[in-house]
C-alpha cells in the first residue's frame, strides 16, 4: 500500500480481502470437487498448491492449499509398494493423525486399521510438502507459467523431479500441474491420461481468481 495515497491503500486492502475470500477452504474444496466430478477422465486426486511470498521478501513458495482425494475407479487390487512393516507404519501414522483430529477415543475406529493404499499414502504425505522457487513439478509449472503433463509410468520414473518419481512408485501413471492465479492445480491418476485442452480450460475457469 502507498501511505501517501489512502484511496490506493484501501483499494489494495479490499483487493487483498477479496482474494483471501476466494482462497478460503470452502471455495477451494468446491472448485476441486467441481474439477474432479466434471472431468471425463478418471483422476485419483487433485491438489491446489497455494503460492505465498516468504517473510522478509524471500522467494515465493508453493504450499498446501487444499486437496481432494477421490480414490481409484478401477477396483482391481494393484500391487502395493508397501512391505508389511511399511503398511503397519502407515496405519500407525493414520491412527495418530486420526487421534489428532478427532481425539484419542477415535483411535479404535475400524476404518483407521483398514489397509492404507499407495495413492492414499501419497496424497497424505503431499500435505507436508512445499516447493520453493521453481523446484519440483508444481514449482516448475508456476515458475514457467506453463502446464506440465506427464503421462505414463515410464515417463514419470525418469523425471528429474523427485515428486514425479515418488508418484510413480505409489502407482500414479499420470501427473499434471497447471498454473493458475496464485497457485498450481495438480492432478494425478492411476490411469494413463493424455493431454486434454478441456481440462486446462476447466482449471482456468475454476481457478482464475483474478477473473
Amino acid at each position: 500500500p502507498n501511505p501517501a495515497d489512502p484511496s490506493k491503500s484501501s483499494s489494495s486492502a479490499a483487493a487483498t480481502a477479496a482474494t483471501a475470500q476466494f482462497f478460503n477452504q470452502e471455495t477451494l474444496q468446491k472448485r476441486l470437487l467441481a474439477l474432479m466430478e466434471g472431468a471425463q477422465e478418471s483422476w485419483t486426486y487433485a491438489i491446489f498448491w497455494q503460492s505465498s511470498v516468504a517473510d522478509y521478501g524471500g522467494p515465493s513458495q508453493l504450499g498446501w492449499g487444499d486437496g481432494y482425494y477421490k480414490g481409484e475407479e478401477n477396483k482391481v487390487k494393484r500391487k502395493t509398494a508397501a512391505s508389511p512393516a511399511e503398511q503397519e507404519n502407515r496405519k500407525k501414522v493414520l491412527r495418530e493423525l486420526n487421534s489428532l483430529i478427532s481425539g484419542p477415543q477415535s483411535s479404535a475406529d475400524d476404518a483407521v486399521d483398514e489397509e492404507v493404499t499407495d495413492t492414499e499414502w501419497f496424497f497424505l504425505i503431499s500435505m507436508a510438502q512445499s516447493f520453493v522457487n521453481g523446484s519440483g513439478l508444481p514449482g516448475q509449472a508456476s515458475y514457467s507459467s506453463s502446464p506440465i503433463w506427464i503421462a505414463g509410468a515410464d515417463r514419470l520414473s525418469v523425471s528429474h523431479c523427485e515428486r514425479a518419481r515418488q508418484a510413480q512408485i505409489f502407482g500414479i501413471e499420470t501427473m499434471v500441474c497447471i498454473p493458475s492465479s496464485n497457485g498450481v492445480v495438480e492432478l494425478g491418476s492411476t490411469e494413463v491420461i493424455f493431454q486434454s485442452s478441456d481440462l486446462m480450460t476447466k482449471v482456468r475457469v475454476l481457478f482464475n481468481f483474478n477473473g
Partner: peptide, 26 residues
Amino acid sequence: SSAVPQARKASLARFLEKRRERVMNS
C-alpha cells in the same frame, strides 16, 4: 503463515472422514 497448518488440518479431517465412508461402503 498459520493458514497453512490450518488448511492441512481441515484437509486431513476431510480426508479421514471420506476414508471412513469409503471403508464403510466397501
